[in-house]
Design a binder for these strands. Structure first.
Lengths: 197, 197
DNA sequence: TCGCTGACAGATTTCAATATCTGTCAGACA
DNA sequence: TGTCTGACAGATATTGAAATCTGTCAGCGA
């Protein structure tokens, strides 16, 4: 046991994730989190004003972690068409992996996200920005022909909702899924590419 | 009171819709339906083997009714690009209208559909067929250039999921929605059109 | 004969009493 | 002085007994 370990928001978040993993979202209480940290539950409220804010913070951490590889991909500098396809496929894979690996925990985080609308909105906006980055790279490279990059990035995000929005998660395991993704990506790429005759 | 009115599946469905409208999905019971028809609940089971099958039948009726205008649009013979756009916009409008007009009843039907997976699958397949019809018309007209019509129709359906799948219904009322739809449709149309230089 | 009834068993839902949790705060402790 | 505790009030969740519902079927009446 470490002596004089200060109670930080970071440690609380860590403990909260543990508790969520162990008890699930509906059973996990602030008292459980406090117990895991060996403090009174009043102390937790010193760092987070409410249980809801604690949950929001956990959701944010989770989303930020999931987003990391996508940020790197968007920041890359290869040919934009390949990079766009790669980015979208990676986005799908990250989500699908989470569902397959630990469906229970995915359900927990999904429910968590339901209550953290603002956090989720910010996350989505960031995703759209990443797509926009790749699209504008593509325009600069002469590969893409796009009127309004921002709006088109949003459209690409919307068009792929079925494969990254958790509401559709149960469809992701179906056998026809990969070929449907292929068809969708082909359609979208054709929609942004310059015409080559 | 009509004398000698026979108890038909049709009359039972009618009464069931009434009861659902009045009590909501969770409260509506087979006994309520029977009471509305002034028969014993045993009689209802003479026409529908279970409550689930009764609900499925109601869901099917509802979906079929909602689909009617779309069938007509797909069967039309104008220029395919306009028809495709019109078809998709109509699909969105039908759904959006239902939510706005009677959110409670929409929620009821949504929950109903959750339990009627087969019925919903058939309905979706029909939608895809209608899109495919328009796409192949477009190819015949020399307006569209499409490798695999069936797969592309599926892709168009998937790409517009955000605006016809009820899981996203709460986003439909947002003010930025129309312009996002415009951007999405423009992207998709560019994805199927022949290149015009 | 054929469709309907109404009583029944087992499954499900309701409801109210009880237990637990959230969020606050006065005071302990360092 | 600043952090933590632990008791508390009101809100929320759990539980189990009672009520209701689903699905069946023997028998009634047309």
């Amino acid at each position: 046991m470490n002596e004089a370990v200060v109670l930080t928001p970071e440690r609380i978040l860590e403990a909260t994730e543990d508790v969520l993993r162990r008890y699930g979202l509906t059973k996990a209480t602030v008292v459980d989190v406090a117990r895991a940290l060996d403090v009174s539950h009043g102390s937790v409220y010193r760092h987070f004003p409410s249980k809801a804010s604690l949950r929001d913070a956990v959701a944010k951490r989770w989303l930020d972690r999931a987003n990391e590889p996508l940020c790197k991909l968007a920041a890359g500098d290869g040919p934009a068409p390949e990079r766009l396809e790669q980015w979208l496929r990676t986005a799908f894979t990250i989500k699908q992996k989470k569902v397959c690996d630990d469906p229970e925990m995915f359900a927990t985080y999904l429910a968590l996200a339901q209550g953290a609308r603002e956090v989720v909105e910010a996350y989505k906006d960031k995703q759209v920005d990443l797509i926009a980055k790749i699209l504008s790279d593509g325009v600069a490279q002469g590969e893409f022909e796009i009127d309004n990059v921002k709006a088109t990035a949003r459209a690409v995000f919307d068009a792929t909702v079925r494969y990254h929005h958790p509401a559709h998660a149960e469809e992701w395991a179906k056998p026809e899924c990969p070929s449907r993704i292929d068809a969708l990506l082909a359609l979208l790429l054709r929609g942004v590419r310059v015409c080559k005759h």
